[in-house]
Design a protein around this nucleic acid. Structure first.
Lengths: 215, 215
DNA sequence: CTGAGAACGTTACGGCAAGTTAAGGTCTGA
DNA sequence: TCAGACCTTAACTTGCCGTAACGTTCTCAG
């Protein structure tokens, strides 16, 4: 009906500047629908209908559902804890944060689908191709590199393997709970502690063993 | 054209017994196509065309592409190494085997998609719902339980976390290589060794520390 | 030898979501 | 007041999914 336009959901939207409220509405709609119908049941049409943002506009802002969802569940603030330089402190706070992220139901629900659509061999790569995990992996490697430089690790320690173990353990725990029907991670601190204690002992230089045992 | 039937690809097929050759042809076609177009580009129609097995028949044998692919890339023999009762031996052989599995290009290529379609929240669950990872997770937990019973582990060791770390590290390594464009795991023994050495030291009882250091 | 039944292939269909296009509104800034 | 950026609506094309209908071919029992 080109004759009379129905009242726009966002007065000021349809103007010349991209409306942040519409942008946010789309992300919020995606999170809501994620909880209701799951990732596999998510469609651009549904997000458009709920958010009041039209489908062509959604495709202007994101290239597909996966990228929309990825942004929707991302940490709003820069969610990586600060770097104090102390291995144990940094590792524990980081892993706790990571576990807390995957504890969010909508994050757990979206993860299998995102792994497929964002990391799949022929997913559209150019923009924002590297999802959360890579940022996290780099961060963990950084923590280990610093500790190694300080001589706190066994010289022959495989920190690359250890980084994979940290990230993989959290994701594995979250996915395991998801598909076995158990509730999401309820105590990120506890989840993190089990991982951190193994890693610290596993990487520690022999003379630092006593310190790790106290942890 | 019901009048004259084109020569069946599998003489004896279309008979009253399920033809094992057709079954195998479908699985082989899936693996081939996996290498050519990737999991996301895989369709039942393409598998049907290449294998000579009709689409309705594929749907009679498997409920969807995911289950077909899952069977296609499964280990033909019972691929889990035997249990000797020795922690270090069992863990090392098992992780090596797991790494070797994910080193196969078609397995790595299919993994993101299978995580999505087989483990997703509303994937059809009833039949063969629990994919490889769960079997593997149980196995690792079994190895740790035995070692704990033998008093070889720290009493406070979180073996559940450790099991997630082992599985997660291998999958994370395989996926990381996949989506960063690096080649698949080339040395499963080396990949396993990095993981195993961290785990053994991380879980070992204090008095067994010397033994772990020798590994 | 013959009929029942199981399993297959072919063809065709309905449904659904992806992603795109065309035509026209509305707001901002000069 | 005018240009241009941005939006909406609506409709469309395309591609795959999953299934149904129906005829054919084989095996097995009698």
């Amino acid at each position: 009906m080109p004759a009379d336009t129905p009242p726009s959901r966002f007065p000021g939207g349809g103007g010349s500047l991209r409306d942040p409220r519409a942008h946010r509405a789309a992300l919020d709609a995606a999170v809501e629908l994620l909880a209701e119908v799951g990732y596999a049941g998510l469609t651009m049409a549904a997000i458009a209908a709920r958010s009041g943002v039209s489908k062509p506009t959604l495709y202007r802002w994101w290239r597909n559902v996966a990228e929309l969802v990825h942004e929707a569940i991302s940490e709003p603030d820069s969610g990586i804890p600060p770097d104090t330089g102390d291995l144990e402190t940094d590792l524990r706070s980081f892993v706790t944060r990571l576990a807390a992220y995957y504890a969010r139901p909508e994050v757990a629900a979206a993860t299998p689908g995102l792994i497929c659509d964002l990391m799949g061999p022929q997913a559209p790569r150019p923009a924002a191709a590297y999802p959360a995990n890579n940022v996290y992996l780099d961060r963990v490697n950084g923590i280990f590199a610093r500790a190694a430089a300080d001589g706190r690790l066994r010289p022959d320690a495989d920190t690359g393997a250890a980084a994979n173990m940290v990230i993989g353990a959290v994701v594995s725990e979250a996915l395991g709970r998801l598909w076995s029907g158990r509730p999401p991670i309820d105590d990120p601190g506890k989840t993190a502690e089990g991982i951190v204690s193994v890693i610290l002992r596993g990487l520690a230089a022999p003379d630092a063993q006593g310190a790790a045992d106290e942890g």
